[in-house]
Design a protein around this nucleic acid. Structure first.
Length: 310
DNA sequence: AATTCGGGGAT
DNA sequence: ATCCCAGAATT
Protein backbone atom coordinates (compact mmCIF):
# COMPACT_ATOMS: atom_id res chain seq x y z
CA UNK A 1 0.00 0.00 0.00
CA UNK A 2 1.66 3.23 -1.16
CA UNK A 3 -0.12 5.26 1.47
CA UNK A 4 1.23 3.10 4.24
CA UNK A 5 4.74 3.36 2.83
CA UNK A 6 4.48 7.11 2.63
CA UNK A 7 3.23 7.20 6.17
CA UNK A 8 6.22 5.19 7.32
CA UNK A 9 8.64 7.49 5.52
CA UNK A 10 6.99 10.54 6.97
CA UNK A 11 7.18 9.04 10.43
CA UNK A 12 10.79 8.13 9.88
CA UNK A 13 11.67 11.64 8.78
CA UNK A 14 9.69 13.00 11.68
CA UNK A 15 11.65 10.89 14.12
CA UNK A 16 14.92 12.01 12.58
CA UNK A 17 13.95 15.64 12.81
CA UNK A 18 12.79 15.14 16.36
CA UNK A 19 16.05 13.46 17.33
CA UNK A 20 18.02 16.24 15.65
CA UNK A 21 16.11 18.92 17.56
CA UNK A 22 16.50 17.15 20.89
CA UNK A 23 20.21 16.62 20.40
CA UNK A 24 20.61 20.24 19.43
CA UNK A 25 18.69 21.52 22.46
CA UNK A 26 20.68 19.38 24.84
CA UNK A 27 24.07 20.30 23.42
CA UNK A 28 23.29 23.99 23.15
CA UNK A 29 22.06 24.17 26.73
CA UNK A 30 24.97 22.13 28.08
CA UNK A 31 27.45 24.30 26.23
CA UNK A 32 25.80 27.44 27.56
CA UNK A 33 25.97 26.11 31.10
CA UNK A 34 29.71 25.76 30.76
CA UNK A 35 30.58 28.79 28.60
CA UNK A 36 28.03 31.53 29.29
CA UNK A 37 29.67 34.89 29.85
CA UNK A 38 28.92 36.53 33.17
CA UNK A 39 26.95 39.54 31.96
CA UNK A 40 25.25 41.92 34.41
CA UNK A 41 21.76 41.40 32.99
CA UNK A 42 22.16 37.66 33.42
CA UNK A 43 22.25 38.04 37.19
CA UNK A 44 18.55 38.82 37.34
CA UNK A 45 15.24 37.82 35.85
CA UNK A 46 13.61 41.14 36.69
CA UNK A 47 11.61 41.93 33.53
CA UNK A 48 12.44 45.62 33.92
CA UNK A 49 16.16 44.98 33.79
CA UNK A 50 15.85 42.38 31.05
CA UNK A 51 13.89 44.93 29.06
CA UNK A 52 16.44 47.70 29.59
CA UNK A 53 19.27 45.40 28.53
CA UNK A 54 17.46 44.18 25.45
CA UNK A 55 16.72 47.69 24.25
CA UNK A 56 20.31 48.77 24.84
CA UNK A 57 21.54 45.70 22.98
CA UNK A 58 19.54 46.48 19.85
CA UNK A 59 22.16 46.84 17.10
CA UNK A 60 24.77 47.40 19.80
CA UNK A 61 27.52 45.02 20.83
CA UNK A 62 27.60 43.47 24.29
CA UNK A 63 30.95 45.00 25.20
CA UNK A 64 29.62 48.48 24.48
CA UNK A 65 26.44 48.04 26.50
CA UNK A 66 27.81 46.72 29.82
CA UNK A 67 28.89 50.01 31.39
CA UNK A 68 25.85 51.91 30.09
CA UNK A 69 23.55 49.23 31.49
CA UNK A 70 25.14 49.26 34.94
CA UNK A 71 25.03 53.03 35.20
CA UNK A 72 21.45 53.14 33.94
CA UNK A 73 19.95 50.59 36.34
CA UNK A 74 21.92 52.09 39.22
CA UNK A 75 20.24 55.44 38.56
CA UNK A 76 16.86 53.93 37.60
CA UNK A 77 16.55 50.65 39.54
CA UNK A 78 12.92 50.07 38.59
CA UNK A 79 10.23 51.17 36.21
CA UNK A 80 8.79 53.76 38.61
CA UNK A 81 12.06 55.68 38.96
CA UNK A 82 12.47 55.67 35.19
CA UNK A 83 8.91 56.83 34.66
CA UNK A 84 9.43 59.74 37.07
CA UNK A 85 12.68 60.88 35.45
CA UNK A 86 12.81 63.70 32.97
CA UNK A 87 13.71 62.89 29.42
CA UNK A 88 16.84 65.03 29.46
CA UNK A 89 18.38 62.87 32.15
CA UNK A 90 17.47 59.66 30.37
CA UNK A 91 19.06 60.96 27.19
CA UNK A 92 22.11 62.07 29.13
CA UNK A 93 22.68 58.52 30.38
CA UNK A 94 22.23 57.30 26.79
CA UNK A 95 24.79 59.75 25.42
CA UNK A 96 27.23 57.90 23.16
CA UNK A 97 25.14 54.75 22.69
CA UNK A 98 23.47 55.93 19.49
CA UNK A 99 19.95 55.32 18.21
CA UNK A 100 18.61 57.89 20.65
CA UNK A 101 15.03 57.12 19.74
CA UNK A 102 15.48 54.03 21.91
CA UNK A 103 16.00 56.18 25.00
CA UNK A 104 12.90 58.24 24.34
CA UNK A 105 10.81 55.15 23.72
CA UNK A 106 12.20 53.46 26.82
CA UNK A 107 11.11 56.45 28.84
CA UNK A 108 7.68 56.57 27.19
CA UNK A 109 7.19 52.87 27.80
CA UNK A 110 8.08 53.22 31.47
CA UNK A 111 5.35 55.81 31.83
CA UNK A 112 2.88 53.55 30.03
CA UNK A 113 3.75 50.61 32.27
CA UNK A 114 3.10 52.72 35.35
CA UNK A 115 -0.04 54.24 33.89
CA UNK A 116 -1.63 51.21 32.21
CA UNK A 117 -0.14 48.20 34.00
CA UNK A 118 0.08 49.38 37.59
CA UNK A 119 3.86 49.61 37.43
CA UNK A 120 4.23 45.91 36.70
CA UNK A 121 5.87 44.99 33.43
CA UNK A 122 3.25 43.14 31.31
CA UNK A 123 3.73 39.43 30.77
CA UNK A 124 1.53 38.68 27.77
CA UNK A 125 3.05 38.79 24.33
CA UNK A 126 0.62 41.15 22.64
CA UNK A 127 0.86 43.73 25.41
CA UNK A 128 4.65 43.66 25.37
CA UNK A 129 4.78 43.80 21.59
CA UNK A 130 2.58 46.87 21.53
CA UNK A 131 5.00 48.88 23.68
CA UNK A 132 7.14 51.55 21.98
CA UNK A 133 10.52 50.30 20.79
CA UNK A 134 9.64 46.64 21.28
CA UNK A 135 9.35 44.45 18.19
CA UNK A 136 9.06 40.73 17.74
CA UNK A 137 12.64 39.99 18.76
CA UNK A 138 12.62 42.10 21.93
CA UNK A 139 9.19 40.90 23.04
CA UNK A 140 10.25 37.26 22.64
CA UNK A 141 13.54 37.89 24.40
CA UNK A 142 11.97 39.61 27.42
CA UNK A 143 9.23 37.04 27.90
CA UNK A 144 11.47 34.02 27.42
CA UNK A 145 14.27 35.33 29.63
CA UNK A 146 12.22 36.95 32.40
CA UNK A 147 9.25 34.56 32.50
CA UNK A 148 10.55 31.51 30.66
CA UNK A 149 7.68 31.80 28.21
CA UNK A 150 7.99 29.80 25.02
CA UNK A 151 8.65 32.48 22.40
CA UNK A 152 11.30 32.31 19.67
CA UNK A 153 13.80 35.04 18.92
CA UNK A 154 15.64 36.00 15.75
CA UNK A 155 18.44 38.52 15.53
CA UNK A 156 21.88 39.04 14.03
CA UNK A 157 23.60 36.13 15.79
CA UNK A 158 20.86 33.55 15.36
CA UNK A 159 20.14 34.52 11.77
CA UNK A 160 23.71 33.52 10.99
CA UNK A 161 23.70 30.44 13.25
CA UNK A 162 20.37 29.03 12.05
CA UNK A 163 21.10 29.77 8.39
CA UNK A 164 24.27 27.73 8.73
CA UNK A 165 22.71 24.92 10.74
CA UNK A 166 20.37 24.08 7.87
CA UNK A 167 22.59 25.51 5.10
CA UNK A 168 19.84 27.80 3.94
CA UNK A 169 20.51 29.50 0.61
CA UNK A 170 17.67 31.92 1.15
CA UNK A 171 18.53 35.55 1.64
CA UNK A 172 17.91 36.18 5.37
CA UNK A 173 17.03 39.77 4.52
CA UNK A 174 14.12 38.77 2.31
CA UNK A 175 10.72 38.31 3.88
CA UNK A 176 10.62 34.66 2.78
CA UNK A 177 14.04 34.04 4.33
CA UNK A 178 13.09 35.78 7.53
CA UNK A 179 9.84 33.84 7.78
CA UNK A 180 11.50 30.46 7.44
CA UNK A 181 14.12 31.38 10.03
CA UNK A 182 11.43 32.44 12.51
CA UNK A 183 9.69 29.13 11.88
CA UNK A 184 12.91 27.24 12.51
CA UNK A 185 13.61 29.22 15.67
CA UNK A 186 10.15 28.27 16.89
CA UNK A 187 10.59 24.60 16.00
CA UNK A 188 13.81 24.38 17.95
CA UNK A 189 12.48 25.79 21.23
CA UNK A 190 12.60 23.46 24.22
CA UNK A 191 9.68 23.30 26.64
CA UNK A 192 11.64 24.57 29.61
CA UNK A 193 14.66 26.84 30.01
CA UNK A 194 13.50 28.75 26.96
CA UNK A 195 15.29 31.91 28.02
CA UNK A 196 18.54 30.04 28.54
CA UNK A 197 18.11 28.36 25.19
CA UNK A 198 17.50 31.63 23.35
CA UNK A 199 20.47 33.25 25.04
CA UNK A 200 22.55 30.17 24.30
CA UNK A 201 21.80 30.44 20.59
CA UNK A 202 22.85 34.08 20.60
CA UNK A 203 25.99 33.33 22.61
CA UNK A 204 26.88 30.52 20.24
CA UNK A 205 26.31 32.73 17.23
CA UNK A 206 28.39 35.50 18.74
CA UNK A 207 31.29 33.55 20.24
CA UNK A 208 31.60 30.50 17.96
CA UNK A 209 29.59 30.93 14.78
CA UNK A 210 31.24 34.23 13.86
CA UNK A 211 30.76 35.91 10.49
CA UNK A 212 34.18 35.46 8.85
CA UNK A 213 35.80 32.35 10.30
CA UNK A 214 33.52 30.36 12.57
CA UNK A 215 35.25 28.15 15.16
CA UNK A 216 33.57 24.92 14.08
CA UNK A 217 36.18 22.86 15.93
CA UNK A 218 34.89 24.28 19.22
CA UNK A 219 31.22 24.21 18.28
CA UNK A 220 28.98 21.88 20.30
CA UNK A 221 26.63 21.35 17.36
CA UNK A 222 29.13 21.09 14.53
CA UNK A 223 28.11 17.53 13.73
CA UNK A 224 24.46 18.62 13.53
CA UNK A 225 25.34 21.48 11.20
CA UNK A 226 24.70 21.21 7.48
CA UNK A 227 27.06 24.03 6.55
CA UNK A 228 29.85 22.34 8.44
CA UNK A 229 29.14 19.05 6.66
CA UNK A 230 29.23 20.77 3.27
CA UNK A 231 32.08 23.14 4.09
CA UNK A 232 30.07 26.17 3.02
CA UNK A 233 30.82 28.38 6.05
CA UNK A 234 31.99 31.25 3.89
CA UNK A 235 29.07 31.00 1.46
CA UNK A 236 26.23 30.90 3.98
CA UNK A 237 24.52 33.05 4.97
CA UNK A 238 24.55 35.01 1.72
CA UNK A 239 26.42 38.28 2.05
CA UNK A 240 24.26 41.27 2.70
CA UNK A 241 23.63 43.26 -0.42
CA UNK A 242 25.29 46.49 0.51
CA UNK A 243 23.48 49.60 -0.57
CA UNK A 244 25.98 51.44 -2.70
CA UNK A 245 25.79 55.20 -2.56
CA UNK A 246 27.26 57.12 -5.46
CA UNK A 247 27.91 60.81 -5.26
CA UNK A 248 26.19 62.56 -8.12
CA UNK A 249 26.61 66.18 -9.17
CA UNK A 250 23.63 67.49 -11.05
CA UNK A 251 22.25 70.79 -12.17
CA UNK A 252 18.56 71.42 -12.70
CA UNK A 253 17.31 74.07 -15.09
CA UNK A 254 14.09 75.81 -14.10
CA UNK A 255 12.35 77.50 -17.01
CA UNK A 256 9.44 79.80 -16.29
CA UNK A 257 6.91 81.20 -18.74
CA UNK A 258 4.48 83.44 -16.95
CA UNK A 259 3.16 81.46 -13.99
CA UNK A 260 4.00 78.11 -15.59
CA UNK A 261 7.16 76.03 -15.22
CA UNK A 262 8.70 73.61 -17.68
CA UNK A 263 8.78 69.98 -16.60
CA UNK A 264 9.58 66.73 -18.33
CA UNK A 265 8.37 63.24 -17.50
CA UNK A 266 11.23 60.85 -16.75
CA UNK A 267 11.50 57.77 -18.93
CA UNK A 268 10.82 54.38 -17.37
CA UNK A 269 14.48 53.42 -17.68
CA UNK A 270 15.82 56.31 -15.64
CA UNK A 271 15.61 57.45 -12.06
CA UNK A 272 12.25 58.94 -10.98
CA UNK A 273 10.65 56.75 -13.68
CA UNK A 274 7.36 58.22 -14.82
CA UNK A 275 7.62 61.21 -12.49
CA UNK A 276 7.81 64.85 -13.54
CA UNK A 277 11.08 66.70 -13.05
CA UNK A 278 12.92 69.83 -14.06
CA UNK A 279 15.45 69.47 -16.85
CA UNK A 280 18.30 67.86 -14.97
CA UNK A 281 21.87 67.15 -16.05
CA UNK A 282 24.85 65.43 -14.57
CA UNK A 283 27.81 67.78 -14.34
CA UNK A 284 30.64 65.36 -13.59
CA UNK A 285 32.00 66.38 -16.99
CA UNK A 286 32.06 70.14 -17.01
CA UNK A 287 33.78 70.51 -20.39
CA UNK A 288 32.55 72.68 -23.19
CA UNK A 289 30.92 69.85 -25.13
CA UNK A 290 28.80 69.08 -22.09
CA UNK A 291 27.71 72.71 -21.81
CA UNK A 292 26.83 72.78 -25.47
CA UNK A 293 24.74 69.65 -25.06
CA UNK A 294 22.87 71.10 -22.10
CA UNK A 295 22.27 74.38 -23.88
CA UNK A 296 20.95 72.58 -26.95
CA UNK A 297 18.67 70.32 -24.90
CA UNK A 298 17.27 73.27 -23.00
CA UNK A 299 16.64 75.07 -26.29
CA UNK A 300 14.87 72.03 -27.73
CA UNK A 301 12.63 71.65 -24.72
CA UNK A 302 11.96 75.31 -24.39
CA UNK A 303 10.93 75.45 -28.01
CA UNK A 304 8.37 72.76 -27.34
CA UNK A 305 7.18 74.27 -24.12
CA UNK A 306 3.56 74.36 -25.12
CA UNK A 307 3.56 70.71 -26.07
CA UNK A 308 5.46 69.37 -23.09
CA UNK A 309 4.55 71.50 -20.15
CA UNK A 310 2.10 70.46 -17.44
C1' DA B 1 11.10 46.25 0.29
C1' DA B 2 14.11 50.00 1.38
C1' DT B 3 15.66 53.63 4.53
C1' DT B 4 16.78 55.68 8.66
C1' DC B 5 18.93 55.82 12.98
C1' DG B 6 24.96 55.81 15.26
C1' DG B 7 28.86 54.99 17.61
C1' DG B 8 32.29 51.63 18.15
C1' DG B 9 34.32 46.88 17.84
C1' DA B 10 36.44 43.26 14.85
C1' DT B 11 39.02 41.91 10.92
C1' DA C 1 38.80 50.61 5.02
C1' DT C 2 35.02 47.69 5.45
C1' DC C 3 31.85 44.89 7.74
C1' DC C 4 29.08 44.27 11.48
C1' DC C 5 26.49 44.78 15.83
C1' DA C 6 21.01 40.73 21.20
C1' DG C 7 16.18 45.84 15.59
C1' DA C 8 12.30 48.99 15.36
C1' DA C 9 9.76 52.34 13.02
C1' DT C 10 8.68 54.70 8.96
C1' DT C 11 7.74 55.27 4.19
Amino acid sequence: MPEVVQEDQAQSLGRKASYWRQALRRRVLNWFGAHARDLPWRRTSDPYRVWVSEVMLQQTQVATVVSYYERFVARFPNVETLARANEREVLKLWEGLGYYRRARQLHRTAKQVVENHGGEFPSDFESVLSLPGIGRYTAGAILSIAFDQRHPILEANTIRLLSRLVASREDPASSAGTNSLWRLAEDLLPRKKVGDFNQALMELGSEICSPRSPKCAECPVSNLCEVNRLGLQTEIPAAKTKTNYENVNEVAVVVWRGNRVLLRQCREDERWAGLWDFLRFGVSDSGNRRRTFIAKTVADWTGGFDRHHR
